[in-house]
């Protein structure tokens, strides 16, 4: 290490350089798997994940850039009722789970920035308990989203949780599971056959947006390639245009983007499309500001209401008009959800 590297990335620890493991989490198969893959990481024993995750005065931005791992046992709230801010696609019984808290990607608009005090990633290693809780809901024929607070497919090599949910779907045909991702690695799915009740929801954005705001994520071209591989292999694919951002030149950017996507993807192969303008939980900014988050995307005068915060009525309508109008040229009305 020399003084010439004072501004270099070499001064910052590697991703997952340290793994904090709850004593109770020591002997789980996932813990063994992670330790086997990250052999060079420093292991630190902890009592409870909140001792590390909720520490005051953490440098959120630096952690988000190179997160550490925290392995824990989830003791309560294994399944949550779905949020009204999210689309339930017509399902009456809508739930979500958090097997992992925090995401390896680093999108500037992400609500996680105002949700957690830390940029480190918590992995709940008792995945079997979470799957068991989900299975108990089968009589309700529910719709369960499993990758909201993270990107499970992006962490598949390390955790194998997407595979667990795929197998769960095979054993529980009454339950529909959605796995949302920005990952473009089809290799993570190549060894599995696609269950009919498993939906891959792939988030797409224009390259202009990806380059500026979706750090560490794959480019649009790679995500489109992934969709085509997945569709060919029999997976149900949902395209998510979420969030749609009110940026300068938005009409041209999003119009061209939709045309480019459906020039490369056959619309008939897609299960459905969902879109949503940027919307954030109430009081998000205070927490995000506390975490040191600064992005021009939040320089908009959002107003809080009972649901949360979004763009002005006029701007939101304009955005919706561009997206919905563009999608209607390729998808039937019944397959477009907001």
């Amino acid at each position: 290490m020399t003084s010439s590297s004072k501004n270099s990335t070499s001064l910052i620890t590697k991703m997952y350089s340290h793994i904090y493991i709850e004593k109770e989490a020591e002997n789980y198969p996932v813990t063994m798997r992670i330790k086997g893959i990250l052999k060079c990481s420093e292991i630190i024993e902890i009592t409870h994940y909140k001792d590390v995750f909720n520490e005051r005065g953490q440098d959120f931005l630096m952690q988000k850039n190179r997160p550490k791992l925290i392995l824990a046992v989830k003791r309560e709230n294994l399944i949550y009722k779905g949020s009204p801010m999210c689309n339930s696609f017509g399902y009456e019984n809508f739930y979500y789970t958090s097997c992992v808290m925090n995401c390896p990607y680093n999108c500037e608009y992400c609500y996680l920035q105002g949700m957690y005090p830390s940029g480190n990633i918590v992995v709940f290693v008792n995945i079997d308990d979470i799957l068991e809780s989900a299975a108990k809901l089968s009589k309700q024929k529910p719709f369960i989203c499993v990758s909201y607070d993270t990107d499970l497919l992006a962490m598949e090599k390390l955790l194998g949780y997407a595979g667990e949910w795929i197998e769960f779907c095979r054993q529980n045909p009454e339950i529909t599971v959605e796995l949302r991702t920005k990952s473009a690695s089809f290799a993570n799915l190549a060894n599995y056959a696609a269950p009919a009740n498993f939906i891959l929801a792939i988030t797409l954005s224009p390259d202009e947006i990806i380059d500026l705001y979706e750090h560490k994520t794959p480019k649009l071209g790679r995500r489109i390639e992934f969709i085509n591989h997945a569709v060919k292999a029999g997976w149900k694919v949902r395209i998510c245009l979420d969030p749609v951002l009110y940026v300068r030149g938005y009409a041209q950017i999003y119009r061209k983007f939709i045309d480019d996507v459906f020039a490369k993807i056959n619309a008939r192969d897609i299960t459905d499309v969902s879109f949503g303008v940027l919307r954030l939980p109430k009081d998000f900014y205070k927490r995000a500001a506390k975490n040191g988050v600064k992005t021009e995307l939040f320089a908009y005068p959002f107003a809080d209401d009972s649901q949360g915060a979004t763009y002005s009525k006029q701007h939101a309508e304009n955005l919706r008009g561009v997206i919905y109008g563009g999608l209607l040229e390729y998808m039937p009305k019944g397959k477009i959800f907001e």
Partner: peptide, 20 residues
């Protein structure tokens, strides 16, 4: 090590601090 550490400045590529 402390001397090197003290000279570290956050690189714009690491941190999204777009303050105008």
């Amino acid at each position: 090590w402390a001397q090197i550490r003290a000279q570290f400045e956050p690189d714009a590529s690491h941190f999204r601090q777009n303050a105008a």
